[in-house]
């Protein structure tokens, strides 16, 4: 998980990139795209469970970001959170349209083959446990699920998660605490 440390070289570099992109520097926007594409794509894919749809929504997210970047105000390391917020709104709109429903199976999400003959035994065990963990995450309520996904699967900070979910950091902390407790209960045999 990312540390919520004071501004460092990385933050300065990111800030410069964002400011350059705001003035219409396409190279800067391209660098930001390279840096955040995986985060946005994985977030969307985890929510929608389909690669073609994830591609559509990811394209729309970056196009929107490009159109609105002049409105973005730099307030710290929150550019990724801003992108995920756009993606989140698009996913919500997509499901509100009623044409699709949220149906993600961990089998679809987990790319590691759990029954491959050529992979080492410990990798198989790890994959099985990961599969169980992801299934348990899927069984959490939607808010807890999103909190766990953003915090752990995407490694976002408390502040970034709070920004995306429209809550205060304290509320995210409490949400995470309850989610982890619920997961621990559900996965008791695996982690005892």
């Amino acid at each position: 998980m990312r540390e919520e440390a004071p501004a460092d070289h990385h933050t300065d570099e990111l800030r410069t990139l964002v400011l350059r992109a705001k003035t219409g520097d396409s190279d800067a926007f391209g660098t930001l795209y390279d840096r955040y594409l995986d985060l946005v794509y994985r977030y969307i894919y985890y929510r929608v469970g389909s690669h073609p749809l994830a591609e559509d929504l990811t394209s729309e997210t970056f196009l929107r970001a490009l159109r609105r970047i002049s409105d973005f105000t730099w307030q710290g390391r929150d550019f990724g959170a801003w992108l995920v917020t756009i993606a989140r709104n698009l996913v919500t709109d997509h499901f509100k349209s009623g044409r699709y429903r949220l149906e993600v199976t961990t089998g679809e999400v987990l790319d590691v083959p759990v029954d491959g003959a050529s992979i080492p035994e410990n990798a198989v065990v790890t994959a099985i446990i990961n599969d169980r963990v992801l299934r348990a995450v899927r069984d959490l309520n939607p808010e807890q699920q999103e909190c766990v996904v953003l915090r752990f699967l995407h490694g976002l900070s408390l502040a970034e998660t709070a920004l995306i979910m429209g809550k205060k950091s304290g509320a995210i902390k409490a949400l995470q605490f309850r989610a982890v407790k619920a997961l621990a209960r559900a996965l008791k045999p695996d982690f005892d």
Binding site: Y46, E108, V112
Partner: peptide
């Protein structure tokens, strides 16, 4: 385990 999942290629 949850933190490790970050490095697992979930869905690619």
């Amino acid at each position: 385990r949850l933190t490790e999942l970050q490095s697992v290629p979930l869905g690619g």
